[in-house]
Amino acid sequence: MLTGKQKRFLRSKAHHLQPIFQVGKGGVNENMTKQIAEALETRELLKVSVLQNCDQDKDEVAQMITSSTGADLVQVIGSTIVLYKESKENKELVLP
Rank of each mutant, 00 (worst) to 15 (best):
K34L: 02
D59V: 15
L51G: 10
D72W: 07
N53M: 15
S49K: 14
M64Q: 07
I36T: 02
Q35M: 04
Q63W: 13
T69C: 05
D57Y: 01
V82C: 04
E44A: 01
Q52T: 14
S49F: 15
A37E: 01
V74I: 06
L83A: 03
E38R: 02
L46E: 04
K85D: 06
T66Q: 09
L83K: 01
S49E: 15
D59F: 13
M32D: 03
A71K: 00
Q63T: 12
C54P: 11
S79Y: 05
M32W: 11
V61N: 03
E60P: 11
L51K: 12
K47L: 05
C54N: 12
T80A: 15
V48E: 06
S87M: 03
V82I: 09
I65T: 01
Q52F: 14
V76L: 13
K47F: 00
V74W: 07
S79R: 11
V76P: 10
V48D: 04
S79G: 14
C54G: 12
S79Q: 12
V82M: 09
S87D: 02
T42R: 10
E38S: 03
K58Y: 08
V50D: 06
L51I: 12
D57T: 10
Q63H: 12
D57Q: 09
C54V: 13
I36E: 00
V74Q: 11
V48A: 06
E41T: 10
K85M: 09
D59A: 14
S79K: 09
V50N: 06
T80C: 15
K34Y: 00
S67Y: 11
K34R: 06
S68F: 10
Q52I: 12
T66Y: 08
I77W: 11
S67E: 11
E86K: 04
N53D: 13
M64D: 06
V74G: 13
L45W: 01
T80E: 14
L51E: 14
L46V: 02
K85E: 09
T69W: 08
Q56K: 14
A37H: 05
S68W: 10
V76G: 12
R43P: 02
I81Y: 11
T69L: 10
S87N: 03
Q52A: 13
R43A: 10
E60G: 09
E44K: 00
I65V: 08
A62V: 03
L46M: 06
I81D: 03
D72A: 04
I77N: 14
V76R: 11
L40R: 01
S79N: 14
E41L: 07
T33R: 07
D57H: 08
S49V: 11
K34A: 00
R43M: 05
M64E: 06
L73P: 08
A71D: 02
I36R: 01
